[in-house]
Computed example of a mutant assay.
Amino acid sequence: MRLRRCGADAVLVEVGSLDEVEAVRAAVAAARLPEVVELVPAARTVLVVTRAGGIEAVRRVLDAVEPGRRVEAPSTEVVLPVRYDGPDLDLVAETAGLTTAEVVALHSGTTYQVAFCGFAPGFAYLTGLPEPLRQPRLDSPRTKVPAGSVAVAGEFTAAYPLATPGGWRLIGRTDAPLFDPRRDPPALLAPGQRVRFEATR
């Protein structure tokens, strides 16, 4: 773990894996430090922003972090209804050596966790994807992926909150309001939350 100061009242925690990111995020969240203003995990870093003078309290929490040990921080579960009719569903099934029904059962039968958000407002990278569904991105990205598309790529699954370009394999779609700038908070999914996909017709 490496700490880098970011201005007077923030620290960037650099680690080597998503598991370590989650260990840091969960430990700081579970500590409920009044000094912490914002906690922003990414693929290999966690940015912790504090009130003036709050860095030392964060350092004390970080000194006790054990990367291999899970810390249970308060979290909620969000269920997203999905119609599994994506244009790449057959490709995912063929690559995995499964039927499309087995792909749906695997994807919808798993509980995921939001590791971090990025790429587009409200876009949450979900970990926990079953091994057979961990597949590469498309050779040629689409110039426009419809909002609500549910997709897989590498070790992640996600739902596109907005219509954007993208190269993930699309297996379904959801009507869940993933991002609404008029809502507080605007994004439906946040780091640490559990997520399940529920197959619908």
Results as ranks from 00 to 15, higher is better:
M1P: 10
R2E: 13
R4Y: 03
R4S: 15
C6N: 11
G7S: 03
V11N: 03
V13R: 04
E14G: 02
E14A: 04
V15E: 00
G16V: 06
S17F: 11
L18V: 11
D19M: 04
A27N: 14
A29D: 04
R32A: 13
L33G: 08
E35S: 13
E35V: 15
E38W: 05
V40A: 03
R44Y: 10
V49N: 02
G54L: 15
A57Y: 04
R59E: 09
V65S: 06
P74T: 09
S75W: 14
T76N: 14
E77G: 12
V78W: 09
P81R: 00
R83F: 13
D85N: 11
G86F: 08
G86C: 13
D88N: 15
D88H: 09
D90F: 12
L91Y: 08
L91N: 13
A93I: 12
A93Q: 07
T95I: 00
L98Y: 01
T100A: 15
E102V: 12
V103F: 07
V103Q: 00
V103T: 01
V104I: 15
T110S: 00
Q113F: 14
Q113Y: 11
V114L: 01
F116P: 08
F119P: 06
F119E: 15
A120H: 09
P121R: 04
Y125W: 06
Y125V: 02
T127Q: 07
L129T: 06
P130T: 01
E131S: 05
P132T: 04
P132K: 00
P132I: 09
L133V: 06
P136D: 02
L138N: 07
P141H: 14
R142H: 09
K144R: 13
K144T: 13
V145I: 09
A147Q: 10
V150D: 03
A151W: 12
E155A: 08
F156M: 13
T157G: 09
T157W: 04
A163Y: 03
T164D: 04
G167T: 03
R173G: 09
D175M: 11
L178S: 00
P181T: 08
R183M: 05
R183L: 00
P185H: 06
P185V: 03
A187M: 09
L189F: 03
L189E: 00
R194M: 11
R194Y: 14
R196D: 05
R196C: 10
A199I: 02
A199G: 15
T200F: 14
